[in-house]
Amino acid sequence: MDPVQELEQLLSEAVPSVEQARSPDELERLRVKFVGRKSRLADIMKSIPQLAPEERAEVGRRANHLKRSIESQLAARREALSSAAKAGPLIDVSLPGRAFPRGRLHPVTHTIDAILSIFVPMGFEIVEGPEVEYEYYNFDALNIPHDHPSRESFDTFFVDLPSPEPKKGRLLLRSHTSPVQIRVMERRKPPLRLVVPGKVYRPDPLDPSHSFMFHQVEGLMVDDRTSFADLKGVIEHFLKALFGAKTKTRFRPHYFPFTEPSAEVDIACTSCGGRGCSTCGKKGWLEIMGCGMVHPNVFRAVGYDPQRVQGFAFGMGVERIAMLKHGITDIRLFFENDLRFLEQF
């Protein structure tokens, strides 16, 4: 037989037998048979000098190649058999992974983070203030005088403690985060860009859409040029970043004592896209926040010159935004702390 053909045949015999070998002993027998000193391969190699000169190189190359490949295959199989021998029994990888405790952040925390992370890159600083506040900061300095009907929209819990600074009026639980604007403006000069997250309280009986405690994020931007057009631009950018680039917004004239002009901002209903549904009360729009140009009386209260300073303020309810984003229909869920609710965030 032609030695080249014979080598081919040896290879095709060796490969499957090594692959199917089940023990080191069997592998040893195969080694002796295919590459041992008395194997057919050894015979062929011994016969090379007798071949015609033009055949010698070719047969030699092929014989060496065959020897190396069988030997490496034997080694691989030997390795495989030995590690299989060391391994334990097969495991059921479909079993659940080992449990970890299920820690989650509250949806209010997530929402506040989402809101702030849009304003911080625009140069807004995060500032906070006390929840127990003076009447002066909560009302008077914000152009909400005593005995004025505009106070009616801000029913308040008063705290039964003597006021440490009677000039600033009684102590109360702040009904909005706006007092922090005043506290900062009293302390610092413009330019200012602030966002103020925090807890607020209003004596509203609990129902699916009211809670006596909730969270707000307030904003203030004051310098020598910021205009109502800038307010629109910033708020539109914010709402697109929060609700998606296609979010439609509209600014509706409204009244807040501390801004002039004042606006309420609506977004096209997130569940019907503006056609009108139960979420938006068939209006197609959802009220999302209030805003406006800071009233000169507020600047006067903090000692700014209203002829030189201008800018805007805005405020929004955190729970309301979380409810819209996640389709939550009952605000009380935020404060019941039921793990089945909390663990969805």
């Binding site: 330019p191 860009r193 040029r225 910033v234």
Partner: peptide, 8 residues
């Protein structure tokens, strides 16, 4: 418009 006012 987007504001061009100075930053603190």
């Amino acid at each position: 418009s987007l504001p061009i006012g100075p930053l603190a």
